[in-house]
């Protein structure tokens, strides 16, 4: 219990230090971190809504519910995958749980994601005058998302220690998955014979409950999506834990 308290204290301190380090550089740093997903959102919204004229009601909310979590997932994976190898000297110098590094990076990214999300959602809701009961369930969807991201990010970070090209393969995987994850299009437009592949996409399953909270919320669908998402998230966490237990002694050797 005491060691768990120490662990979370170190995570909190390092998250705060990460934020300070990121925002310290310049005020533009803060703008960049938060503005970047917002700009991507507006560009995609413009392209798919105005240019391609996708016929989806409340497309702005639909895209917001898919794109922002996607940016959070891929951004976190990109930053966490090389974290053990780039911070190898630190890990080898003291007794510091590698998971402190992973979690502090995830929480740092999560706070940026949350800020960007709220900066988009609040004005949108005010302007459109639409308030969904689903927003009350956002904390549950976010918790599930963070658990899933923790599982995948720690698994990739561990793999990177043993297979040094994982970080270069990762952008390829996320680029492919971007088109196979219903972020800017609804799953309903996918032909029936291909839909099974999309529905098995873990990123889609993790994002789905989040989107349902702000777009076309329906309580039964939400809890079903949350159940599936949690199943995926906890499976990744369990896989990561198993991989860590199996390779932890060789971890310092390969660092």
């Amino acid at each position: 219990m005491k060691s768990l308290g120490i662990f979370w204290r170190q995570v909190r301190l390092l998250t705060y230090a990460n934020l300070k380090s990121r925002y310290r550089k310049t005020f533009a740093g803060f703008i960049w971190v938060v503005a970047s997903p917002i700009v991507i959102y507006y560009i995609q919204s413009l392209v798919f809504k105005k240019f391609l004229k996708l016929d989806i009601p409340d497309y702005s909310l639909f895209l917001l519910g898919g794109l922002l979590p996607w940016i959070f997932i891929t951004g976190t994976l990109e930053m966490c995958t090389p974290i053990f190898t780039t911070r190898a000297e630190l890990l080898k110098s003291f007794r510091l749980s590698p998971y402190v590094l992973i979690l502090s990076q995830i929480f740092d990214n999560f706070l940026n994601f949350l800020l960007a999300f709220l900066l988009l959602l609040i004005p949108m809701s005010l302007l459109q005058g639409k308030y969904s009961l689903g927003t009350a369930f956002l904390p549950l969807a976010m918790l599930q998302l963070v658990i899933g991201v923790t599982g995948i990010a720690s698994l990739f970070a561990l793999m990177q220690v043993f297979l040094r090209d994982i970080r270069y393969i990762l952008p390829f995987i996320t680029n492919v998955l971007f088109f196979l994850t219903p972020i800017f299009y609804p799953i309903e437009i996918v032909p029936e014979q291909y839909r099974v592949f999309i529905e098995a996409n873990p990123f889609y399953l993790m994002i789905s409950p989040f989107r349902l909270c702000i777009h076309q919320f329906e309580i039964n669908s939400f809890f079903m999506a949350l159940f599936k998402g949690s199943l995926v998230s906890f499976s990744f966490l369990a896989m990561s834990y198993y991989a860590w237990k199996r390779r932890m002694n060789e971890f310092y050797l390969y660092l």
Partner: peptide
């Protein structure tokens, strides 16, 4: 308490 390298920082930007 153990230390394996004395020339180490946590976040060099700070």
């Amino acid at each position: 308490r153990a230390i394996f390298n004395s020339a180490i920082g946590i976040l060099p930007e700070l």
